[in-house]
């Protein structure tokens, strides 16, 4: 706690005003409106609305499409997190071994972070398009019927790969930093005691890396949930059928295309609860790391 401070009440409130005004108008008010609208049901012409309590929630949760989207979200997010973290950890371990090259490899691997999710989707489309994509055509010539526009599983695979590709660089940076902070003496001691590299990895490196890994898991899940709308929108549009429709994508479809406010708001509120839970987990963890 700071002891020496400036006096005054008007000035600090004035300094805070821009941030607070924007927060109130574009964050708190809409969030409140979403909660309020989630309790209402509009007639099809949007002229009258009626208070229906939690009925929108009950309807949303019972909807097979919503459950399908929830399952897609779970599958998509865990796959993106596992793929992006696994690849990054493997590459970071390799980079950590070559002391001189580590920084060079970092430079060569971090730039995908800057590519927008929607642009990442377009880049992968060029590779996996069934008729103009290099890999897509090769797969078809090899006798595998590859067309992500018709096959739901292939579409899911492609959005997972495109979304994970972008996130590896972030994970790589944190894993490499984590690995480089492990004291060499501990590893050398284990080596002298006869522990082989694989054993050293599982019994020393991984446990010491677990705080980083846990932090990254939360970040990756948040990324896969909320920042990948562009990947799905640009690549598959939620299709074929509803094979790649995630919860966020469904809120967008329901609200923007179908203009079903009650249902869309109820879905938004469910997602809000989810973000609050994820943020709480994240901050509890970061707080602990600060006091470490």
């Amino acid at each position: 706690m700071r002891k020496t401070i400036f006096k005054g009440t008007a000035l600090p409130l004035l300094l805070l005003a821009p941030q607070l005004v924007i927060t109130a108008i574009f964050f708190l008010w809409p969030a409140g409106a979403a909660i309020w609208q989630s309790l209402l049901q509009e007639d099809p012409w949007g002229t009258r609305s009626e208070f229906v309590g939690l009925r929108n929630f009950a309807e949303v949760l019972a909807e097979p499409e919503w459950r399908g989207a929830a399952w897609n979200t779970l599958l998509f997010s865990t796959s993106v997190a596992v793929l992006a973290m696994g690849t990054a950890l493997f590459l970071a371990v390799q980079a950590d071994k070559s002391i001189r090259g580590a920084n060079l490899y970092r430079t060569l691997l971090i730039w995908p972070y800057a590519v927008a999710p929607a642009v990442a989707a377009v880049l992968w489309l060029f590779l996996f398009h069934p008729s103009i994509g290099l890999v897509g055509r090769a797969l078809n010539q090899a006798g595998l019927a590859w067309d992500y526009k018709l096959n739901g599983n292939q579409a899911m695979l492609l959005v997972i790969v495109a979304a994970a590709w972008k996130q590896v660089s972030y994970n790589f940076i944190f894993f490499l930093a984590g690995l480089q902070s492990i004291p060499r003496a501990v590893l050398e001691a284990a080596a002298i005691d006869g522990a082989k590299p694989v054993r050293r990895f599982w019994t020393i490196i991984l446990p010491l890396l677990s705080p980083t890994a846990f932090f990254l898991l939360v970040v990756n899940l948040v990324y896969a949930f909320f920042d990948t709308f562009g990947v799905i929108h640009a690549l598959t549009g939620g299709g074929p059928g509803k094979a790649t429709e995630t919860l966020i994508y469904k809120v967008y479809v329901e609200g923007v295309q179908n203009v079903n406010l009650g249902s869309s708001s109820a879905q938004s509120v469910i997602l809000m609860v989810l973000v609050i839970a994820l943020t709480a987990v994240q901050f509890r963890f970061i707080e602990r790391k600060v006091h470490y």
């Binding site: 927060t23 964050f27 708190l28 008010w29 809409p30 969030a31 409106a33 979403a34 609208q37 909320f226 709308f229 966020i248 809120v251 967008y252 609200g255 923007v256 406010l261 869309s264 708001s265 938004s268 509120v269 997602l271 809000m272 973000v275 609050i276 943020t279």
Partner: peptide, 12 residues
């Protein structure tokens, strides 16, 4: 605001 990304309050 950390807990209210655009994605969860699109319509309002």
């Amino acid at each position: 605001t950390l807990m209210l990304p655009v994605e969860v309050r699109i319509i309002p």
